[in-house]
Structure formats: C-alpha cells, structure tokens
Computed example of a mutant assay.
Amino acid sequence: MNESAKREPFELYTAEDGTALLRIKEWEERFPWLSAGFSTRLGGVSAEPWSSLNCGLHVGDLDGDVAENRRRVAAAAGFAFDRWTCAEQVHGRDVAVVTAVDAGAGRLSRSDAIEAKDALVTIEPGVMLNAFYADCVPIWLVDPERRAVGIAHAGWRGAVADVAGEAVRTMTRAFGTKPSDVLAAIGPSIRGCCYEVDEAVARHIPEGSDSIEPAAVPGRYMLDLAKFNRQMLTKAGVLANHIEISVYCTSCRTDLFFSHRKEQGRTGRMTAWIARKE
C-alpha cells in the first residue's frame, strides 16, 4: 500500500479557545486512562515569526507568551499546567525515568527542566510528559499492560543513536515492559520528500534501508527519519503492526506546523505529550 493512502492516526481537534491539537484518537478511545497528542502552530498568542502556538522557550519568543501557549495545550489535553514536565533536549539518546517528584519540571523555565534528556518515560499517573519539535521526529510509546508511557525526540543524531530503542529498553528495565506489548506512534516530522542531507549524514544510515534514497544532486540524499525510526523500533522488539506512522510532513504543511528547515530557523516549536490520567 502506498503510504499516502494509509490511515492517518492523528485527528485534528480544536478546543473552544481555538487551540488546535492532533490527538491519537484510537489510543485514547481504547485506553480511557491515556492522553496523547501533538500541538500545531494554531491557536496561541505568540507574534511572528513564532505565530501562534509556539511552545519552545529557547527560540527567542517572549517567555510569558510561551507559558500561556503551554497552559492552553495542557488545558486542552485535560491537565493542570503544574503537571507539564519536560527536559532540556540535546539530540542524544539518554532517557529519564520520571517520577511524581519531577512533575512540573521545566514548565516555566529551562533552568529547572530535566537535564540533557531526549526521551522521558513514566508509570506515574497525572504526570504530563512533553517534548518539542519543528521537523524532528516525535515518538509516543505506551505499554497498555503496565500502563507505562514514554515520549522521545529524534532528530538525525538521536535517530542513529537509537533514542527510540533506548526508550523501549528503559521501559523494560524500569517497569518490566515487554517490547512486544508496546504500541508506538511516529508523528508529524520532515519527511523524505523534503529532508535533503549530505554524505556526512547519509553514511550513518545502514545500506539497504528504505529510509534513504539518492537526491537529484550527486552526493546528496533524501532521508525519511520517520521510516528510519520505525526500523529502530522494530529492531528493539516492537511489533511492526503495533507502530502507527503519520503521513504529515512538517515542511510541506507550514500552514499547520512549524518547520525549522523550511522557515530557515526563525520559527516556533510544537509539543508532543503523553500521560496517564489520574
């Protein structure tokens, strides 16, 4: 089946205040204790070039506007803002096991965010795990047997370092998760249609991977990190039929998403969240 013909796992939802979010509807219907989704760029208070639902504190936007945007996302997701919990992302593979004590880390300031982590996992109810994106790949993980959840941030460096697989392995060590029980979703990101890379990046992708192909220009390649992360998840033991993948490309859809590459670095950040409800 052509990927463009596949069912899109994310459904657009707009709250009463105009905050536009994508929800993993099937998961939320199957598991009433779960909340999982992704913000768009629509429905916030930030001015250009971060208009309007920028959730990143590190892009030059006003801190007060970012805080208000985050509050709107938390409210639309059904959580108090003091449960918003995030890390300082460094394009690595390290994973934090988040406890109730960590709840609220980083919600208003980068200074008290969880330090240098690109994936967060928890089994605690009421802790809203958040991470930030503007082309990199968001990855949601849920173990429905143990009600453990996780979120990962995978740019090309994190992807080749296997942050997705490390998040699954951390859930196994921390919570007893069986990889075959894990459900995964790969969200909107820059796709192979738009992500051109050079040989220095391409050489990290295993030969024969269907996630990369030559570009029109010699020595350049088109890389699909969503496909690559799907391969890393299956390598970690997640069943192929347990992995959902969005067809949205952030670079193609700057009407809906921020794109660091398309907008030449002057843009905002979406947030992905996952949480067990209390």
Rank of each mutant, 00 (worst) to 15 (best):
M1Q: 10
E3Y: 05
E8C: 04
E8L: 06
P9Y: 07
F10V: 13
F10K: 08
F10W: 14
E11K: 15
E11Y: 00
L12Y: 09
Y13F: 12
E16L: 13
T19A: 09
A20T: 14
E26I: 01
E28G: 01
E29H: 08
P32F: 06
W33N: 02
W33D: 03
F38L: 04
S39C: 06
S39D: 05
L42I: 08
S46P: 08
E48C: 10
P49D: 07
S51F: 02
N54G: 01
G56T: 14
G60A: 02
D61L: 09
V66I: 12
E68M: 10
A77Y: 15
G78E: 07
F81N: 02
R83I: 04
W84I: 02
T85G: 00
C86I: 14
R93F: 15
V98R: 01
R107L: 12
R107D: 11
L108Y: 14
L108S: 14
S109P: 09
R110Y: 10
D112T: 13
D112W: 04
E115R: 10
K117M: 12
K117N: 10
K117Q: 13
A119G: 02
V127I: 01
L129Q: 06
A131K: 09
A134F: 00
C136K: 05
D143L: 12
P144G: 04
P144S: 07
E145M: 12
R146V: 02
I151S: 04
A152L: 03
A154P: 00
G155A: 07
W156A: 03
G158L: 03
V160C: 02
V168E: 08
T172Q: 13
G176S: 07
G176A: 05
P179I: 06
S180R: 13
D181A: 15
L183V: 13
L183M: 14
A184Y: 13
A184P: 06
P188R: 11
S189T: 13
R191N: 11
C194Q: 13
V197G: 03
V197W: 05
A200N: 11
A202P: 06
G208E: 03
G208R: 09
S209C: 03
I212G: 00
E213D: 02
P214F: 04
V217D: 06
V217G: 01
R220H: 12
R220T: 14
R220F: 14
L225P: 11
K227W: 10
M232Y: 04
K235D: 09
I243Y: 12
E244Y: 09
C249R: 11
T250A: 10
C252H: 08
R253V: 02
L256K: 08
L256I: 13
F257H: 03
F257D: 00
R261A: 13
K262V: 10
K262H: 15
E263T: 07
R266E: 13
T267V: 12
G268P: 05
G268N: 08
T271P: 00
R276I: 14
